[in-house]
């Protein structure tokens, strides 16, 4: 990424595109310890009225986190990261993670972040504060 000195309010963070699969939900369940059947069992997810399995909200948040860390490439560290979960993600969806620098502080930037699906529905929205060393 650019050095902190050249970052400006209004600048965009390079987008991350993510297409979840059933296999990834299984892999994430094992890595995170969240085995809720709404993410793993199609029949169960249908029975509880979800119309099929949905991705873990935390897996979508992790995609936004991945967008941030790949952009930072070790230059700064995330000191705050916050999202609201607004819509569901299903295997096969195309999720676009985006971010924009909202405010530049003495040694930090405040970013607005979001994830949208292929229908431009907001999946999550939130913010991140990234701190840079002097």
């Amino acid at each position: 990424m650019e050095k902190f000195a050249v970052l400006q309010a209004g600048a965009s963070i390079p987008e991350r595109v993510w297409i979840p699969t059933d296999m990834q939900l299984r892999q994430y369940a094992e890595a995170s310890g969240d085995y809720n059947p709404i993410h793993l069992d199609e029949k169960f997810a249908q029975q509880v009225g979800l119309g099929g399995v949905i991705a873990h909200g935390m897996l979508t948040m992790a995609q936004v986190g991945a967008m941030l860390t790949q952009w930072l490439n070790g230059e700064g560290s995330i000191s705050q990261f916050e999202v609201r979960f607004q819509n569901m993600v299903r295997p096969g969806d195309t999720i676009h993670c985006t971010g924009v620098i909202k405010e530049k502080l003495a040694n930090a930037v405040v970013c607005d972040v979001k994830a949208l699906n292929q229908k431009s529905m907001e999946i999550i929205a939130g913010s991140a504060v990234i701190t840079f060393k002097d």
Partner: peptide, 27 residues
């Protein structure tokens, strides 16, 4: 090993960094 599995499940290479949402694995 746990961080590597978590990073791989997210779909990012493990380069020794702890992803920001890793705390969620603390059960």
């Amino acid at each position: 090993e746990n961080v590597r599995r978590f990073a791989e499940a997210i779909g990012i290479p493990y380069v020794g960094e702890v992803p920001p949402t890793f705390i969620i694995t603390f059960r």
